[in-house]
Amino acid sequence: MADYKALEDLVVQVRRDILRQVHKVNSGHPGGSLGCAEFFVALFNELMERNDTFEMDGIDEDLFFLSNGHISPVFYSVLARAGYFPVEELNTFRLLNSRLQGHPTTHEGLPGVRIASGSLGQGISVSIGAALTKKLNNDQHIIYTLCGDGELQEGQNWEAIMYAAGNKVDNLIVTVDLNGQQIDGSTDNVLPLGNVKSKFEAFGWDVMDIEKGNDLKAVMSGMKKAKEKTGNGKPVCVLLHTVMGNGVDFMMHTHDWHGKAPNDEQLENALAQNPVTLGDY
């Protein structure tokens, strides 16, 4: 197990990476990214069994798919700091000729990315496919997926959710970033999701909550519990209660920072709230 303090430091550094990436190009999505920093850090550094080198096929390792591709800044930061590519490459986020496209893609061959995402609602389906291949290959590893809560409004998710339960895809853990926000406002105002837990349960999933989605310890222990639930004939859903923009006071509890970059002054303020831990890229 990684040293807990080191992981806490990593979370703060990841927040800095997110803020600096989007600030530099004055575009990208800090809100959802910040809210998922603890999740990504826990997943890549504590939960997933990962091979040292990146191979697309990911044989004998756990795989992760990001369905809500717009939160690429957190994904890129955690991938880089997990050693998939040089941290300095975060400097190229959204620039011409970069491997760090606005939304994650396999097209430029960025290690750590196994599917393009950005157009919402497709990740669970892809994850089911990868999970089925694991089974066909007698590979006991797990597929992890993250999707947004607003994203669940896409009908394709529910086709996938129905399939996974009906076909006992039990090597799959889908985490929903339940931040209650999307572009045009709160999910309640845009299109109420209703009781997400009962919905997944009604479709036949094993569902659990992580109430403190921005508490690293809670995320780590919650995700471990989720892992224990796999292999029991049901796909597993984790409802991760997060705060959009977490860790930067003026970005929290609003949809305003879903897809807006901070200006110079705001960046300085935001970084001051998250002092350097591991070192900036």
Partner: peptide, 8 residues
Amino acid sequence: LGEDGATH
């Protein structure tokens, strides 16, 4: 559309 990239 710019920075969002090819998916969009």
